[in-house]
């Protein structure tokens, strides 16, 4: 089944809630995008969580090359420093433009919560129509994991607490970039 219409819906819905959506063909491209973005914003310290050691190492050498500091895990010691963070996500829910992340790892949580900008890698194959499509998977996680922190993230953090005027970027990330990864990109 073609994922194209789902990916398009996912992108539209996410853009409607102020996320930035791009398509990437390789992990390396995604890392470059991430580092360029950080440099454009004048950031210096970046964080990555949820990657295997090979991926993490390749990002680290790219960072060195660009004179950016990839904060070493655990991130708790650098909580005040994270400018940009990159993480993979488990699923995308197309009908609301929502990312689903299993954030049981503290580093995944700190990276996605404390960064000014969060860059999320979403494999196109992991885009599903709606939350009901993964209800069984979520239920299994909640029932079988000894502890879990499942996050649905839809756009950057926001508030309308002052005069109901929408303002983006309160306590969570001020920008959310979703990089939709082609199937063989992993």
């Amino acid at each position: 089944m073609s994922q194209e219409p789902l990916a398009a819906l996912m992108a539209n819905k996410a853009k409607a809630v102020q996320a930035i959506v791009e398509e990437m063909t390789s992990l390396e491209d995604a890392f470059h995008y991430f580092l360029n973005l950080t440099q454009k914003q004048g950031g210096r310290h970046v964080a990555a969580a949820g990657f295997n050691s090979k991926e993490f190492e390749s990002l680290r050498s790219l960072c060195q090359h660009e004179s950016l500091n990839l904060l070493p895990p655990p991130l708790r010691g650098h909580a005040g420093k994270i400018h940009t963070a990159i993480t993979p996500v488990e699923w995308g829910l197309a009908n609301t433009g929502t990312l689903v992340l299993n954030s049981a790892s503290e580093d995944v949580r700190l990276a996605t919560m404390l960064a000014d900008t969060h860059v999320a890698l979403l494999p196109v194959s992991k885009i599903v129509p709606d939350v009901e499509s993964i209800e069984k998977d979520l239920d299994d996680i909640l029932k079988t994991e000894p502890a879990t922190y499942l996050a649905f993230i839809t756009g950057p953090s926001r508030t309308a607490d002052i005069e109901r005027v929408l303002a983006i970027g309160v306590h969570g990330p001020q920008a959310l970039h979703i990089l939709i990864m082609e199937n063989d990109a992993e």
Binding site: V17, T98, A104, E106, L138, L142, E145, P146, A147, T148, Y149, L150, A151, F152, I153, T154, G155, P156, S157, R158, G172
Partner: peptide, 10 residues
């Protein structure tokens, strides 16, 4: 923006 499901001592 966020819907969070928390189980157990993380």
């Amino acid at each position: 923006s966020y819907v969070t499901w928390i189980k157990g001592a993380n």
